[in-house]
């Protein structure tokens, strides 16, 4: 009976270790957090070009993540991209005239949605749309414009 007991204790320890490891992978290594879907509120924004912005891309303000992109879809009537973002629950004082930019972190990094607060005293609420947006910078376009301008100056 003693041997059986010892086996059970060690198997129990093993199971606990295994699930602790899994918990660590879920909570510490990956982005599973329990407050994701249920909390917060949704805003939308329209862009002429979202670049490579994707679902789950971060939404930041002053460089701090305050939410995530929940959906990116194409509006076939206006030929624009519609981005739905979910802002974390505590962040409820985003001014109405906030500016939304698609930024790139570093030269080769991932794209994210950066919000720059405006001066309005009215705050955005669930379902509102961010009116002021600026599209992603596309490297090829920038280089093209630069060359065009240079050619214009010299000619």
């Amino acid at each position: 009976m003693g041997k059986q007991h010892r086996i059970e204790v060690m198997v129990g320890t093993f199971m606990v270790l295994g699930f602790l490891a899994l918990f660590f992978l879920a909570m510490r290594v990956s982005n599973l957090s329990l407050d994701t879907d249920a909390d917060g509120y949704r805003l939308s924004a329209r862009f002429a070009n979202v670049g490579s912005l994707k679902v789950r891309s971060p939404v930041t303000m002053a460089g701090v993540r305050i939410g995530r992109v929940e959906e990116v879809r194409f509006d076939k009537a206006t030929y624009e991209a519609v981005v739905i973002v979910r802002i974390d629950a505590g962040i409820d004082t985003i001014p109405e005239d906030t500016f939304a930019n698609v930024f790139t972190s570093g030269l080769l990094g991932e794209q994210y949605l950066g919000l720059e607060p405006g001066g309005s005293q009215d705050y955005l609420r669930d379902g509102d749309e961010i009116a002021n947006t600026q599209s992603a910078l596309v490297l090829e376009q920038m280089i093209g414009q630069f060359l065009f301008k240079k050619a214009g100056e010299s000619g």
Binding site: M15, G18, F19, A21, L22, V29
Partner: peptide
Amino acid sequence: LAMPLLAAIFSAVGV
């Protein structure tokens, strides 16, 4: 049953 738990432990220790 043991295999996924061992793999989880491997990954966690590896990280």
